[in-house]
Design a protein around this nucleic acid. Structure first.
Ligand code: FES
Ligand code: FES
Lengths: 157, 157
DNA sequence: GGCAAATCGGACTCAATCGGTCCGGTACTA
DNA sequence: TAGTACCGGACCGATTGAGTCCGATTTGCC
């Protein structure tokens, strides 16, 4: 079931890669593809998608490339993945609106929408900071702390 | 991302349907398909898969059909879905073992395995009781109650 | 100005998967 | 013994996904 597409994997790798660099360091598609072992033409499409989503900033022309639009701690997992996932949801009702005309009689819809909302909330609250320092995850679960309250709040008893 | 296959949806519907009946009530493929609006030949495949997974018990011959092997509260969500989902996992590493030869250099593997384990645990602990009485979910999240209060209704077909 | 580096963006192919169907075989029961 | 219903494999068409190709455009640098 919940496997992300290959493009999403590449998107996660790219953002992770850029997050490890200094903030205003630009990297070209060719360089990034070579270092991460990704087909360059495909990575180009992925980065364009991330730019359209507002996560990356592109510089055209010689010496150009991509850089993060904001720090990794403010980029949520769902934002990275959504441009490349057509259907986000558990059952047909929540993904492809066209197809499922079973909306009345179907007894699957309600419980699944609860499950769906739960999962979405988890992925929504999870930032890309996880990919930089994953050890926090082992204690807190997917509910990662927001960048602002990471020091003061969220202490478990 | 995490959309289940059509077969899994049919499997969930079938188990839910059977769970609402009296424990030893058998239903034929044709009847179940007609009542739930599922292509009969396809539903037959699904029920066979569920039987192989040990969730259903089949009776052949005239007057035969399927019934639940155990109460819904003891059937976990993952059990129902697994026979029809080839790749369960978030990234390639965790699904298709063949394909991903990036195991060393890939920095995606570790954080994703944490996420993967978390999700699997959630789905593991979630029983099909959710589909019978979903209100408990709204307060507790995916960690459903223990298989104790299975109050089966006796509505006939 | 000219050239090279780099992003942009559409069109395209190829293979795998998925949803669904068909049909012969087998077991059971009335 | 005849009908009912499960069993199981083969098959097919549509969709999707991964990946490629190529031309256009913008920009920096000599
Ligand atoms: S699968 Fe769409 S309403 Fe149930
Ligand atoms: S995608 Fe398989 S090791 Fe990273």
């Amino acid at each position: 079931m919940f496997k992300v597409s290959r493009k999403s994997e590449y998107a996660l790798m790219a953002i992770q890669h850029l997050a490890r660099l200094e903030p205003d360091f630009v990297v070209s598609v060719a360089d990034l593809a070579a270092q991460e072992g990704i087909p360059p033409d495909l990575l180009a499409k992925v980065l364009q998608g991330l730019k359209k989503a507002g996560l990356l900033i592109a510089s055209k022309g010689a010496g150009g490339g991509y850089r993060l639009a904001r720090p990794a701690g403010e980029i949520r997992f769902l934002e990275v993945v959504r441009p490349f996932e057509e259907q986000i949801g558990v059952v047909s009702c929540h993904t492809r609106v066209t197809d499922c005309q079973r909306t009345d009689g179907c007894s699957l819809r309600d419980p699944m929408s609860v499950l769906n909302a739960y999962l979405m909330r988890q992925f929504e609250q999870m930032t890309m900071e996880l990919f930089i320092s994953p050890h926090t995850w082992l204690t807190t679960g997917p509910r990662t702390t927001t960048p602002a309250e990471s020091t003061s709040l969220g202490r478990r008893s």
